[in-house]
Design a protein around this nucleic acid. Structure first.
Lengths: 343, 343
DNA sequence: AATTAGCACTCCCTACCCCAGAGTGCTAAT
DNA sequence: ATTAGCACTCTGGGGTAGGGAGTGCTAATT
């Protein structure tokens, strides 16, 4: 059933206002503040209808009305005006995101802190998770007499390293030869396709017995996948909002956010959409302890095949429009930064 | 002035109890619960003295007494019994700390989460900060046609990397030669001792013009130092304690903990001691917003010259004995893990 | 038929008060 | 030097009253 225009206007007004003030709205206030064309009584009747339809709720008999989760859902999907970042906001954002260090880690942290600073909510980033990497290249580097660093490059240009003792008589040239052969042998193989039985390794083991077992272990671990790291920022922001003046709620929020695994699970379950922001409102999270929270997620790509998520989590009464455009802008900025990194 | 034995006993009893219950203690309770040899009246008199001396405080006229900061200080320095981890606690701890991935990052995260899980306070780790690194070794690795990965090893065996486009006709052997020469030229130099004017670079620039400027920038950044990363865990633990049922306090705690810089500053200022735990009680932090918190810090070493800090932060009423021995044990465990990593 | 005015009713929130309980400090007795 | 006795103080919880905001219903108006 389609809502009348007037109902939509009223619902939008209530949600807009509630997002700002966290105060239940009465018919009088709505009329005065937003819709002076209609009398309070008219609005009162409409509000009763909207409650009937499940878009509004009454905290108690004689309070005003408050949006319900379905109300917010309708709002996000249809009612809300898309927020456009102003010029100065975009500049501010770009300035904050300017990174000197060109490390993935640093960029991600910065993006995270930028989002929380700009939205005043708690932000998080989850780095792309890769479950099975392929071998790309290996390099043995002499870092001092008898000590060698093994550097592995895997698909997605992930870098892993490990130290190992080496025979004293080995030279960098020798290491380079070994590196070359291993790279040729293993190129583009996964951990369990790798085979250490060739003649080459038998030979090597005579000169340098530690190498093969160490390599075996290292490659096994390094190629088994990684990522899925969680970064958080602005957890204290939750206290800005009335609904979390209550210690119990604040605690359950913190408990959730503190636990990387549960956050990762939730995000993984939710983030299907590619281009647009995912919005999860209140109990849509499916978790009892998060029924007072909403999340907004956006995915970003480090490379074609590896995607991470950036998002915010805050009260259900959230400035969705603003958050969504901020996240879209940031994710876009991250995408271009990462693309440039490969250039 | 030296306290009498009886005064010490009473003070210790009060602090021990207060740490557990967070409830002001009256003379009657002290007598009944800890010191039935003396009558409440005697204890009352002694408590009045202890208040006079500044070790106890009264929240109000007719409440019991509560330890003051100087009281806690005395307790930590002289009164408290050193806590010894039980066998099963040590086992639990070692089990949690068992790491599959042998990456610095992973170990540190794990140590952090272990501490907060075991102490029920908020824990943090700050990785060693190195302000000026020296060049040790460089290696150019072909990761695909026309794309090269530069891997730098610096003092402390820090690894940094960057991608760069390369001429299509270059081979891995060519890269190995270049790597060798650069390593010889720059070995053990700092960023500003490095000189790109030699004939070698002039020659190289003809074949591969992007390399020199890219290297310049990369080495500049990579050798300028790094570390000082902050990891946090168990922030939600603060809600376990009565004194943080108050939203205002919880907020200022979170605000502090959220801000990596302020945490780093405070830790840097405090952590001088090498062998033993540093304890900072209440206003000793010198920050108004942290006057209800205490910190305990312990340093750990990744290598001889680079030390990080691990610690916890919680209410002033903290189980110092337990926290200190946990931290000492963990720091010790980390030291041996890192030592083994080099072996 | 849709809108509006009027009005009685409901419920929360705050302020206020009162009192029991716990602990103190002082004095006098042991 | 220690202890018993006692009057005094202060907090925190429970109970209560009244103002305020908002509702739903009915009747009047457009």
């Amino acid at each position: 059933m389609e809502l009348s225009d007037r109902k939509k206007k009223i619902l939008k007004a209530i949600i807009d206002d509630y997002i700002e003030t966290a105060e239940p709205l009465g018919s009088l206030t709505v009329a005065r503040r937003y819709l002076s064309d209609y009398s309070p009584a008219t609005i009162r009747n409409e509000m009763a209808d909207l409650e009937e339809l499940g878009y509004l709720e009454k905290p108690h008999t004689s309070a005003g009305r408050v949006p319900s989760y379905t109300g917010y859902r309708l709002y996000v999907d249809m009612l809300m005006e898309k927020y456009r970042l102003t010029m100065s906001e975009m500049e501010d954002l770009s300035r904050r995101l300017e990174i000197k260090a060109r490390e993935l880690d640093g960029i991600v942290r910065k993006a995270c802190s930028t989002v929380s600073a700009l939205t005043d909510y708690t932000s998080f980033v989850i780095t792309p998770q890769v479950s099975q990497l392929k071998f790309k290249n290996i390099k043995l580097i002499m870092i001092q007499e008898g000590l060698v660093l093994i550097v592995l490059v895997a698909t997605g240009d992930m870098i892993k390293d490990r130290r190992i003792k080496a025979p004293l008589d080995i030279t960098q040239e020798g290491l380079d030869r070994i590196s070359g052969v291993i790279t040729d042998l293993f190129c583009l193989k996964t951990a369990n396709e790798i085979d250490f039985e060739s003649v080459f390794f038998v030979e090597i083991s005579k000169l340098w017995p530690e190498l093969v077992p160490c390599l075996k272990e290292f490659l096994g671990e390094a190629l088994s996948g990684s990522g899925g790291d969680v970064y958080l920022d602005g957890t204290a922001n939750i206290f800005r909002y009335r609904e979390y003046q209550d210690v119990g709620r604040a605690k359950s929020f913190m408990d959730f956010v503190d636990d990387e695994e549960s956050l990762k699970n939730l995000v993984r379950k939710a983030s299907q959409g590619e281009t647009i922001c995912e919005v999860i409102i209140g109990s849509e999270t499916g978790r009892q302890d998060l029924k007072d929270c909403s999340m907004v997620l956006k995915s970003y790509s480090v490379s074609d095949d590896s995607k991470g998520s950036i998002g915010i989590i805050g009260p259900v009464r959230m400035d969705y429009a603003r958050v969504m455009s901020t996240l879209e802008y940031i994710a876009d900025a991250m995408d271009t930064i990462f693309r440039r990194m490969i250039d």
